[in-house]
Design a protein around this nucleic acid. Structure first.
Lengths: 255, 255
DNA sequence: CGACATTTGTGCGTATGTATT
DNA sequence: CAATACATACGCACAAATGTC
């Protein structure tokens, strides 16, 4: 036992253990996102493992956004965001992109389900409240962009984010934002054309807003369905044109 | 240039690059979950980086379930599941467990939203279809377990999984399963008591099933709300008893 | 601005446990 | 059982980023 390793028992599963130990450290000290963590060297001594193990554990935790590592500065408790979900869904979407775009369609369907599932609470929340001038303004800007033949991804994202701003549910809001992000990241990667009937989408946003302020749940649900329809048909169209020209797997750059 | 590092240009951002390169490799070869990947040594040569970098990249990808590493066997394309989301949500839930159990409540609210948001499609799907004898059997077993004073986590999980089995949306089904898993993993960690009024929960499952087979969307939505009510009140009760005895942060075991 | 300390990032050699053959 | 292939882990040295004086 001259160079490496401690007792063969202790070092077994040292890696899995290290991840859990660091998580325990955060939990037991009640650290919050942004709080500083010990340096890698200190963690090595505290946990009795080598720096390689600590580093791999920190890599795992940082990819889950449980810790955030800043080069030359230190490590901190991470934002506990949905970024791992976003990476995974984007990868899945691109992976079956040459097929039937199934994942992308499913992501859109999930967005629909979330908008429908929060409909009642959202309408109830706006009952008797002030009109949503912020959302009204976003719709107006969408209309202006459309008139100029431009897109309005910025306004669309803001609309769906602000729509749920009053929900008192961070996870739902983060999930909705994450799914929106997946969609907007994947579409350019696949070279999909932006939806054709843009006008309808703007109108659908307005209809959602009207129904919301009118307190009409059923109208809101209908507007949600109408809103996503152009997206779904665009995906279907892309699938049709894709299956016409099935791309053969390219050779990998590496190997 | 005797010991470490290649040219300072080539190794720039080697870390970020390595993860992306491996993802590209999978994408360009159109690999599917379970397909084998090159050994770490081969990846080192192919990407021109050291084993450390490849290992850390593989750690990142494996924690995102994009690759799966089997000890002493090799690396394979991962299942692209929701496991990163589960880890993250469990950690978040436990982290604010000594507070207001906010994350746990939000997870339950998200489950409600998903069940409500898929209500219409689910009812439509069952219209004219055969009765769900499988779900009926699960409810019956729940009732038997309750009569013996036992829990029925197994049957509950199966019920909510099988409920959406016909949905043709893998992501929604995986998300629902993932959230159920978060809930059942977190509750024991926090030592929360199982819901008190178990009978109502069994009845609510039955009511959901009845409404589904009757094709009554509105009754289904009501049953969903009733179903989650015991859970929500249990969480509220735990918050109340928690705030009575606010635990001070313990000293961390390490450091 | 430059010199310096601190901290993370990368490379490499090596030892060891484990699964396959 | 032995040989082989592979993943896991350790330790050190150097590179690069960041903050401070």
């Amino acid at each position: 036992m001259n160079t490496a390793a401690g007792s063969s028992v202790a070092r077994r599963k040292a890696q899995w253990s290290t991840v859990e130990e660091i998580k325990q450290y955060i939990l037991e000290l009640r650290l919050h996102p942004g709080d500083p963590l010990p340096t890698e060297t200190e963690l090595c001594e505290a946990l009795g493992v080598s720096r390689s193990s600590v580093r791999e554990a920190m890599r795992t935790l940082s990819s889950l956004d449980i810790v955030e590592v800043r080069h030359g500065h230190g490590s901190f408790v991470g934002g506990l965001s949905m970024s791992p979900l976003v990476s995974g869904l984007i990868f899945r979407s691109v992976l079956d992109s040459e097929g039937d775009l199934r994942t992308l369609r499913e992501v859109v369907d999930l967005r629909i389900a979330l908008d429908l599932g929060t409909a009642e609470e959202l309408v109830e929340l706006h009952r008797g409240g002030p009109p949503r001038d912020d959302l009204r303004g976003l719709v107006e800007r969408m209309r202006q962009h459309t008139a100029r033949g431009e897109g309005f991804a910025e306004e669309d994202g803001a609309f769906h984010r602000e729509l749920l701003a009053g929900l008192d549910n961070t996870i739902v809001r983060q999930l909705v934002s994450a799914l929106w992000e997946v969609h907007t990241e994947v579409v350019p990667k696949l070279g999909l054309p932006p939806a054709r009937d843009i006008d309808k989408t703007v109108e659908a946003h307005e209809a959602m807003l009207d129904a919301l302020e009118a307190g009409d749940v059923e109208a809101y649900r209908t507007a949600v369905a109408d809103h996503y329809q152009p997206l779904l048909t665009a995906i279907e169209a892309a699938v049709a044109s894709n299956s016409a020209t099935p791309a053969a797997p390219r050779e990998a750059r590496i190997s």
